[in-house]
Design a protein around this nucleic acid. Sequence first.
DNA 1: ACCCAGGGTCGTC
DNA 2: GACGACCCTGGG
Length: 295
Amino acid sequence: MEKNMKNCYLKIDNIDSFELKDIFECGQCFRWKKIDENTYVGVIKQGVVKVEKELNTVSFSGCMLDEIEDFEAIIRDYFDLDTDYSSIKEKLSKIDSYMKESISFGTGIRILHQDLWETLISFIISANNNIPRIKGIIDRIAKKYGKKVEFEGEEYFLFPTVEELKDAKVEDFKALGTGFRDKRLYKTSQMVYSQEISLTEIESLDDTSKMRDMLLKFDGVGPKVADCILLFALKRFDVFPVDVWVRRVMNDLYIKKDDESKVSKNEILKLAADKFGSLSGMAQQYLFYWRREEK
DNA sequence: ACCCAGGGTCGTC
DNA sequence: GACGACCCTGGG
């Protein structure tokens, strides 16, 4: 282990609504790896974390930056442990039988509270892309620019800080296999570094639509990516990111047009707002995961 | 070998 | 406000 890292450990008993597969494979995050059914290892902002679940007990073993003071606080925040998912699921289940079924499928989902900078870059990469490739690109960025951490005999790389990524040029991004997203990643990195748009300021806002307006100023951030950032990094549970899968599931279940590409986004958003209201983001994750995983 | 789609966005008309 | 282009990779 490196000198400026330290080992941390936390065990939580009687945990509710917490299934590893549901949390890590519902499409919200890209840096968690399955070791076996009961074990995942991932890289978060402050270090490498191994999560193991046995019955209703979850343990977290971390190799974390020395500067962190409260491992438990970091874990509780990242895994959204202070939100009552039982009551959310209960409310959503009452809406209709489709919600009930999607929730019973993804009953252990939690919306992670991920780092804003990392989420911004990750979801710019996600545009017109598939999940395995997105993961590969992020891994290569981390390996080239991020800090190396050794944990249980394996090498991991933290996602690079703004400072660590500021010298990456368009060609550097291109060389990592980002394709046409190279310019967007470069521009956005520069905008963040120069504080042309301040991430700290975005985080300090409480109005969701003002946050969205600021996010939309970054190159490569359109409505869908902005909503994903709002949901996965800024804990705005009222947003409803619409992608091909969500369009598909919403059309199949509720709108029922012959050609799903003819369904307007506004139609979907209106329906979601009416049905799910302030819990739209949660509903979106259950539906997305259900539709993608369930054949 | 060929075609298609993937957690969309951008530039142009 | 609609429409095509876009890097690359895996799967049919």
